[in-house]
Every structure is written in C-alpha cells, then in structure tokens.
Design a protein around this nucleic acid. Structure first.
Length: 418
RNA sequence: GCGGCUAUAGUAUAAUGGUUAAUGCAUCGGUUUGUGGUACCGAGAAUUCGGGUUCAAUUCCCGGUAGCCGCCCCA
C-alpha cells in the first residue's frame, strides 16, 4: 500500500456500514420503531446540528463537557455549532417551542445519530444512533412504569428472554429523603451519588475511605449509609407496578446514579446479565423541569435512550440476530448469454420489473454458469437467460433456482408464474 | 486525560535473526466456450510507518500511527 493514496479506513471512531452491517442496523432501527409505535409513540426528528449554547446553558460543568467531549466548530457565519451528543436537549427545545399547542401527555420517539468526542471502548464509539423515547406532561408514576415496560418490551421483541437482562431502578427523591433522615449534609449528596455509581467497580475498603472523605471523617455516618444502602426492603410504587405487569427481572438498586445533573426522580437502566457484555443497554429517568431553560411553565417528563452499538453487542452476545438479514437482493436475475445481449436483458428485466417484481441484470463478464451460481449465492429465486435464441423467438425460460423447474414462453406469460 | 495488549494477502490464522513467508475462507480463471449449488486443478494478493542494534530484521529495541481492552467520564 502506497502512502501516496488515501486511506480506505473510516474516520476515527465512526463506522462504515457495508451491506451486511446496514442490514443489521436496519433490523435494529425497525424493531425499535415498531415497538415504540406499538405503545403509541410518535416519531419526530431534527437536525444533527444545534447551536452550542443548547448544551452549555445547563451550567459550567456542561460547558466543560461541550468543550472537551463534543464535535464543536464555528460556521462561516461565525455561529458556534455542535454535532448533537444526545437528543434530550433537542426534544426539550422542540416541546418547549410548541408547549402551548401540544396536547399532553405526549409520547415521542426518535432514532437520531449523535457524536461524542471521547475515548472509544467496547460498546462506545464516537458516532452512534440512539433510540430516544420520552413522555412529556405528566408526573404520574405509571408513566415511569410505562417507559420501563417499553424498554422491557423492546428487548423481548428482539427475542431476548428476561434472564438475559436486568432492570435496575432507583429514585432520587427517595434517596434524598433517606440521606437526610440519616443526617447526611445535603451538599454532599451529589458526591455520594457519584461514588455509589462506582461502588461495584472498586473494593470495599476504598469505597469506605472515599465515603469517609466526602463526609469529613464521620466514620459512624459511613457505616450508617452502608447499612441503609444494603438494606433491601424498600420497594417503590414503580417496582411494584412493574411486577403487576408481569415484569419481574427488576431490582431496586440504591447505588444506581445515572449521572447527576437533570434527573429528579426515578432513574433506571437495563444491564446485560452476560458476563461477556457487562454493560448498560439503556438508561433513563425522570426530569421534572427540563424545558425550564426555554422559559414558560415547567413541563415534566421521563425518558430513556438506548444506543445501537450496545444493542448490537447485546444481540450478538446472546445470538439473537436473525440469520437471513444479509440477503437483500432481487427476486429475479436476468442473465445475458454474453455481453452483446446486455441491453436485451435490461429490456426483459424492465418488463418483469414493471409488474412489480424486483429484477437485476447481471452485466458482468463471467461465464453463464458462474452467473447462475452468483445469482443463487446472492439469494435470487429465479433466473432468466437472455441470448440469441430467446431474442429471436421472443420465448424465454424462467428457472426456479431452488426447484430447478423451468417455465417457457413469451415474457408476459412468464410473469404470471411468478 | 491515563494505563495494558496487539499490528503478516480482502479476511481469519501460521512460521522464521539468513536464499521461495504457509494454510483455510473469499476473489479470479480452468476442467465444463448456453444453465448453478459438489469435486478437482491453477492464479493474483501480505510482514503498519520511521529510526536503531546486526554481516543480515517481518522477527530484537525505541518512536509514530492505528486498533482492541480497561480507567476517568458517560449528557
């Protein structure tokens, strides 16, 4: 390979979708859409470009994140734009923009592609697609239940069984109450929440050390917090309601954090139970004032996002991808006996295609036998050979590749047997 | 931002401090010049880039680049 040539590799962190990959992507997207719509969610979409302010407005932490972990640049009109790293600010903007006209509660979904400039690892690339589902305009806890039930149903519709994944649920309000009841200073709660999120990744000793540091050396409080976290007798109404819907692979997990900015109530995630793919497949939660940035009355909402990369990893880990996805090809292949009949083959193909059947014409230079072989490999059901005899007699033979049967006659007649 | 591992035809894997770097799959051609799937024969195609050690480096060392895995973060 000469270094004078351009690389055939895709840009760092993004993927090429060759037909076999595009088929998988298409399968994932269509299953997402089908299940979301079965719950009555309406599809929306928006541009991948947003003004950078949309992401910076939430505070200094967000500004740092935008500066370091997004694709942000200045356009020719001196406007600062960002390739969206998530869909939630966009949908909040859209809902706020028509808040007076929309009828709530609102169920919306989208499958945007998003970009994040960060280090890649398993399940995480710099470009990804994400199913985003939100319900706006209700604080009823059954909306939280519905969102989780939708997430559950999506996985079921991919062929998963409940033992393949685990739903973890927590509630920010409940945790705040529990901490305050223990006498934990309110300003330390975010740091504790963040630490808890890493609890299963670090050993018990360093967990205690860090917790003690946050609490200014109060060892007694450390023990009380750990006891409270490990006590598993609380059940929220969300968890109870899920079990009434027959969804039982749910655990109430007081360590679950899901980041720590805009969630205000229920937070949840779904994790793959396979040790080979120990990742969150989706995450979401309730945010009761997301549209506040845009003025107007606060609109409550609950939503989740699930990524295509982790979705595909999940399906591959559990061998849930259908085998026959790759073969997207025409039903019939018209094969010229040699290249001088290419145009005649195109003519025959057009007649068949006009009747609503997909046809390609093999205009390659291989021998007839190879072309038939290729048609068969690609998954075509029929072939029709176009050569001197056929053109002069206008009588064609349609061959069924799986049975070997041939039907002969004028092209219009042959179509009827398809 | 930090750390570990890896880099050989299109792809998946071998091997080697020394003359021709091997095999499967894939591709192309032939046995079979107008009828497929099998079989057999044949062909093309590779040591990531730069530097160093050495008589000699694909192999050993350093660096770049890229990828994988993990940490941080995960909106």
């Amino acid at each position: 390979m000469s270094n004078k040539h351009l690389s055939t590799d895709a840009y760092k962190g993004v993927r090429d979708f060759y037909p076999e990959d595009a088929a998988i992507q298409q399968y994932i997207f269509s299953t997402w859409a089908k299940t979301a719509e079965s719950f009555g969610f309406e599809r929306y979409d928006a541009s991948i470009l947003e003004p950078s302010d949309l992401y910076k407005a939430k505070g200094a932490e967000n500004e740092e994140m935008v500066n370091e972990q997004t694709y942000t640049f200045t356009d020719r009109g001196d406007r600062e734009v960002t390739l969206r790293p998530e869909m939630t600010p966009t949908v909040a903007r859209m809902v706020a923009g028509r808040a007076r006209a929309l009828s709530f509660p609102l169920r919306w979904y989208s499958i945007p592609n998003c970009f994040r400039y960060e280090r890649m690892q398993r399940g995480r690339l710099r470009e990804f697609w994400q199913l985003n589902c939100d319900i706006f305009g209700t604080t009823d806890h059954t909306a939280d239940v519905e969102m989780i039930a939708l997430a559950y149903q999506i996985l079921i519709d991919f062929g998963a069984t409940p033992d393949m994944f685990e739903i973890r649920v927590n509630d920010r309000r409940l945790m705040n109450r529990l901490y305050i009841a223990l006498g934990v200073p309110e300003e330390t709660i975010p740091a504790i929440t963040n630490l808890n999120d890493r609890r299963d990744k670090i050993d018990d000793q360093s967990y205690r050390t860090e917790l003690k540091k946050i609490l200014g050396g109060n060892g007694l409080l450390v023990e009380e917090i750990i006891m409270m976290l490990d006590k598993s007798d609380e059940q929220t109404d969300v968890v109870i309601a899920l079990s009434e819907l027959g969804i039982t692979n749910v655990v109430f997990d007081k360590s679950l954090a899901r980041g720590f900015d805009y969630y205000t109530g229920t937070v949840f995630e779904v994790r793959d139970t396979s040790p080979d793919n120990n990742r969150a497949l989706l995450g979401g939660g309730r945010y009761d004032n997301l549209t506040g940035l845009f003025g107007g009355d606060p609109i409550p909402g609950i939503g989740f996002g699930m990524g295509d990369v982790t979705m595909r990893d999940f399906l591959e880990t559990h061998k849930l991808l259908p085998e026959n996805l790759q073969k997207t090809t025409s039903t019939v292949v018209a094969i010229p006996a040699d290249s001088t009949f290419n145009l005649e083959a195109h003519k025959a193909a057009k007649v068949i295609r006009d009747s609503g059947i997909s046809v390609t014409t093999d205009i390659g230079t291989k021998k007839l036998g190879k072309k038939i072989s290729d048609a068969s490999d690609k998954g075509a059901e029929y072939i029709i050979v176009v050569g001197e005899d056929e053109v002069s007699s206008q009588s064609f033979s349609l061959k069924n590749l799986s049975t070997g049967e041939e039907t002969s006659g004028p092209i219009n007649k042959i179509i009827e047997s398809l």
